[in-house]
């Protein structure tokens, strides 16, 4: 099958490859660039596990052909944290508020939340739920994802206040064997 040349900027780096015109962006990212943090959870654009940010907007990369992204700027989960920083605010929010369990939907969920906060830095619970209706999670029941986004909105620099770093602070013994 014939191929076409695709040049895209992914996580700040210009990448150029010959790909079949039918290749989906998500397969280009995963199979050609080997950026496997972006996942595939369905084949009908319902689940959002493949969400990446293309030219500033969250897109489902299973619904975009690689050739359609030509000349575009893409951010994937691997490129989300600023250089030298471990986590972005949204990533830290998911950690702090237990916004993930199995972690499979998480990269797409985090990218969608990142795009949301880019447009609306202080969303209400209602706004968060509606912004995420294209991203499915089967583990959390969503409440802790909502909490994660709120954490990120309240801590836009992603810095954890010292007192709430639960892992290294004195634990509460509430609920223990009493």
């Amino acid at each position: 099958m014939s191929t076409v040349s695709v040049s895209v900027t992914v996580n700040g780096e210009l990448r150029t490859h010959e790909v079949e015109p039918r290749v989906l962006l998500v397969h280009y990212l995963r199979d050609v660039l080997r950026l496997t943090g972006t996942h595939v959870g369905c084949d009908t654009s319902n689940c959002g596990a493949c969400t990446v940010i293309l030219d500033g907007a969250a897109v489902k990369s299973c619904t975009v052909l690689a050739v359609q992204a030509r000349g575009g700027e893409i951010t994937t989960i691997e490129g989300l944290a600023a250089p030298g920083e471990p986590f972005s605010a949204v990533q830290q929010g998911f950690h702090q508020e237990h916004g993930l369990q199995c972690g499979f939907c998480t990269p797409g969920m985090i990218m969608a939340c990142t795009a949301l906060l880019g447009e609306n830095p202080d969303p209400t619970e209602h706004e968060i739920r509606h912004a995420l209706e294209g991203n499915l999670c089967r583990c959390t029941g969503y409440q802790m994802i909502v909490n994660s986004v709120r954490w990120a909105a309240e801590h836009p620099d992603g810095i954890v206040p010292e007192s709430s770093d639960a892992a290294s602070s004195a634990p509460s013994t509430q609920g223990a064997g009493s």
């Binding site: 496997t36 943090g37 691997e78 950690h95 237990h98 634990p171």
Partner: peptide, 16 residues
């Protein structure tokens, strides 16, 4: 036991 400890699993999963 009973502490609200954050997960060791998370760092890999939230960074791809």
């Amino acid at each position: 036991i009973g502490a609200r400890v954050l997960r060791k699993e998370d760092p890999n999963l939230i960074t791809g």
